[in-house]
Design a protein around this nucleic acid. Structure first.
Lengths: 245, 245
DNA sequence: CGCAACCTTGATTCTGATCAATAAAGGTGG
DNA sequence: CCACCTTTATTGATCAGAATCAAGGTTGCG
């Protein structure tokens, strides 16, 4: 892969010509308003696989929108173990947990070489005052995050290992599909251990359950390459859990 | 108990003389601004134990601040089971999950006779435009909810039954204490089953674990009356899980 | 090429769920 | 106000699902 930019180098990017606009900030601004929105974004930043976008405990100043790539967020427990609280792909927003205390409460980590837009929170607040539709949209984004978390709680509290993994695969499939990728043939960007951490399972259980799904003929597993052969079977598995993930 | 108001009867209440102001909307407004904030609140509403404040699927129009009493929120799964996603006491805000889809995604249910302030979301948005400090505070409240949810995820994903229950008791104790109640002597407003649902445990496990804590001499259990005899022991139990609840 | 990280699979253990029986509390109506 | 019934809680016995322990295999990075 040809590297056009050095690691960490920043490039000005504009919302007004971003293809993710519809996912990220679908607020129906006119041309002039959109130009003002461009001023919200400080810069675009590139990260290499494994690099931290922000760390728990760091001062919070900005939200980050994923432009390309893949991220996870993790919360740390004192004894060193940490739990994955979310996976983020293009058009999704990270860092909203930091607003309440001006401090990030989780780590944000790139799972592959990635690029994000930095949205300084002060700029966002200011822009929100000028554009009520932006304001409203931002409320919705935060609310969406709360609803997403509720779904995870439901999963962690009520579902069995197979149901959790099925919900995970279906959710991933749908989000990829929304972004124009194949719904039933994709590469996992995270390890079995990270999946397990997110689902409240051990990596062995994740591995075993994937193998079981393959034996059932529902999926094909080739390391990180997953094919959903019978997505309906997976959906049936989680049918008795609404808000699934 | 003497009923001063019929069920559902509404009474105008004002933020400007509410004792919960510091918990609910601590935004340092001056007298004039506070008077305008009063206009945000539509009404105070009384609910009897067991009554629904809102139902999943209902149109979202307002947030609710608990004035007195105790609430739970639950998300429904298709097969009828539901999971408790939170308990709410005075000064806490319910309903933020409804913003993103204009529809409540969970039920809000009174666990005892209670009183809430209704905050029509439209009024809030409007007031936020006029008072940036209110705006900022509202962002913080939503962010706080996200952080709270992260803690629950950590609990559901990583902690064992004893740790979960210890975290639950300590959290309850601290929140009661913040409101001027005894930290180590309180009445549970929810059933064992509701605790279990919240913690991802079965009611028998909750009961057994409480009994065990009592045998250890850490707490005294008399049905819903709980005394923390050795809160430090409980805190030690959860010491290896930071963000605990 | 070699080492480290990651994955798979098997054997065993353990935590918490399930099944079951009893007891106590709270609400209802006579 | 009391008796009854429903709901809620406790405790025991057994079971199942996932964790843990363990070994071997694969991948991919340096």
């Amino acid at each position: 892969m040809i590297k056009l930019f050095k690691q960490g180098e920043t490039v000005q990017k504009l919302c007004s010509n971003c293809s993710l606009q519809a996912l990220c900030m679908p607020v129906g601004l006119n041309g002039n308003e959109m130009a003002q929105l461009d001023a919200v974004i400080r810069q675009s930043r590139r990260l290499k696989k494994g690099e931290y976008l922000f760390r728990a405990g760091e001062a919070f100043t900005s939200l980050f929108a994923v432009r390309t790539g893949f991220f996870k967020t993790t919360v740390m427990s004192q004894d060193g173990r940490d739990q994955v609280t979310g996976f983020f792909m293009s058009g999704e927003l990270l860092g909203m947990d930091g607003i309440c205390s001006h401090t990030h409460s989780c780590h944000g980590i790139a799972l592959e070489d990635s690029e994000v837009c930095e949205l300084p929170f002060g700029n966002l607040e200011e822009a929100g005052e000028r554009f009520p539709s932006l304001q409203t949209h931002f409320y919705k984004l935060m609310s969406q995050e709360i609803v997403r978390d509720q779904g995870i709680m439901l999963m962690l509290g009520n579902m069995r290992a197979e149901e959790r993994l099925a919900a995970f695969l279906i959710n991933l499939s749908q989000r990829l599909n929304q972004r124009g990728f194949a719904a039933n043939d994709f590469i996992l960007r995270m390890s079995r251990e990270e999946i397990g951490s997110y689902l409240g399972l051990k990596l062995e259980t994740v591995s075993r359950t994937l193998s079981k799904f393959q034996q059932e003929g529902w999926i094909k597993v080739d390391h990180k390459h997953i094919q959903l052969l019978d997505p309906e079977a997976l959906k049936t598995l989680i049918a008795n859990c609404s808000q699934a993930l």
